[in-house]
Design a protein around this nucleic acid. Structure first.
Lengths: 150, 150
DNA sequence: TTCAATATGTTGCAAATGCAACAAAAATTA
DNA sequence: TAATTTTTGTTGCATTTGCAACATATTGAA
């Protein structure tokens, strides 16, 4: 039933596409909403961890964050105990944009789950978490150059 | 619980990333596997429908297919009753590559569902289909310039 | 039939994406 | 301590992605 993975791909592309179109009004370019909300939820996170969290290439995250900084939505701060890392924080302006993102995401969520009972929603969340846990192991392995045998 | 949509996004990006890395050996560049398998499953489909099926922009699909044709994996044929459309078919070489894609996708599927019972897999497929159905309505609406109110 | 609307396809940009390759700090091992 | 490995960050380059804008064929309405 590789059907499951196809459905996931379709849903993800459709939602991402919708979000990108809708966030243009907020002057957010492709994908930026992903990073911004997570930085707000995890202030002080570094970009390496953020990339892992989102499941995107390190360099892609680096540039998206760079752009968020340039646009004044995010701030990078050095750490006194570790001269290498740069902690990420939302700026005032970033904090102001986030509710708009949340509202959009909530709406998409409502649309996506319409017709599902609360129980079904709980079930699907539980199962998706499990699937994500399985998949992220392989993702990290393959990203680091590992070769899957099959 | 917008958590669900996040999980879906993470899973989709991770799997797509894995596939793209693994298919490099087959000289398939980013995303091409998506189109090729579906053309094999729906010979004669036109690119507009394929884009809808995959949930990707028309022009993105157009160029991916163009490249598949250039690389000799897919063939475009005109229709005698409709001079505008171009039906898509796999070439011999395309047909030879597809089993490799299937094997990889099957493996990813097994990995993703490991630890889930058959019943759970059935449940999640059922629920994801419903979610996809909900989401694609909005996708088509927004892609055509519609504005969602929320 | 004629004219407007829609469907399908293409091209031109500008931007995001991600692999390679590099640099330097930190952590681990010898 | 010194040497090696890992972590974190960056830049270069080629590619994909997608919105605008256009072109033409088909379909639908007046």
């Amino acid at each position: 039933m590789t059907e499951i993975l196809r459905e996931i791909g379709m849903i993800a592309r459709a939602l991402d596409s919708i979000s990108n179109i809708e966030f243009k009004e907020q002057d957010l370019t492709k994908g930026q909403y992903l990073y911004l909300v997570r930085i707000c939820e995890n202030p002080g996170i570094i970009q390496e961890k953020l990339a892992d969290m989102i499941k995107v290439d390190r360099t892609t995250a680096a540039r998206a964050i760079q752009k968020l900084e340039t646009n004044g939505l995010v701030e990078k701060r050095g750490d006194e105990h570790n001269r290498k890392i740069k902690k990420l924080f939302p700026t005032q302006q970033g904090l102001e944009v986030v509710p708009v993102i949340r509202r959009e995401n909530d709406h998409s969520n409502r649309v996506a789950l319409s017709g599902l009972s609360q129980e079904e929603a709980d079930t699907v969340l539980h199962l998706l978490r499990k699937i994500r846990g399985n998949v992220e192991v392989d993702w990290e392995f393959v990203k680091k150059g590992g070769r899957r045998e099959y």
